[in-house]
Nucleic acid binder design. Sequence first.
DNA 1: CGCACCCCCTGCCGGC
DNA 2: TGCCGGCAGGGGGTGC
Length: 270
Amino acid sequence: MPELPEVETVVRSLAGELAGRRVVRVLLRERRLRGGVARDFSKRLEGRGITRLARRGKYLLAWLDDGAVLLVHLGMTGQLTIAPASRPDRVHDHVVITLDDGRLLTFNDARRFGRVAVVGGDALGVETGEGVDPLADAFTPDALFGLTRRRRTSVKSLLMDQRRVAGLGNIYVNEALFHAAIRPGRRAGRLGRDDCERLVASIRLVLAEAIQRGGSSISDYRDGLGRAGEFQLSHHVYDRARQPCRRCATPIRKQLHAGRSSFYCPSCQR
DNA sequence: CGCACCCCCTGCCGGC
DNA sequence: TGCCGGCAGGGGGTGC
């Protein structure tokens, strides 16, 4: 599921609900999430106030009033939702946080690839990585051009490497490369400045539209209030193998790159 | 450095 | 109908 637009949508849907709230109680029902949940997770959260929400790459950050940060990564199937106290228990509800207004903030994750942790504010960089956020001002054509120099890897692999660019996953890389008319398998080092200019603009545009439509709900994704997104209806290539290109009607091709499916139009993309 | 493979886990879908 | 293999938006590790 969740790439930058989905995490951003969760952040936006929860920001007003959580800012100023206090954590009353934490019920940790499953510690076997990615990396394992630390023993003191609940203790570091209980009694703390939540000051504000933010996003870094695919991480959701909730700043606490002691300077620490609750960090949530949704993995593939994670959902972080707020609901009335009357919400019944569901399968895969791994963390249930009771807030001071009685509502429940719940982390549900069928596959348990997600991660929750409380970390010191100064450890954020180490925990979340330092890749440039593609919506940040620092993500310029020059910056991307620099990242690609002397890189023999594919442009798709490079863009999905969270240590370099933080937030893009399989859906939005494929969509952005289609918009920029660049094939996923192109060697990063062979991109020209003009390619990087188009690619930065395409990434920004695709992400902005996706956020506007509330993200892509392929199957599991929901925002913080439980609502599905709609951007999957606007996909041009992702999960459209053998279907006609929306621009030229050529069948969309599916191909494996480093174990992940790539989708592209062999006519529009070069 | 780059990549081909593993792993982690559940759920769903299509084929037989 | 039921079973089984393959695949899925995530990341991490190893060995070549």
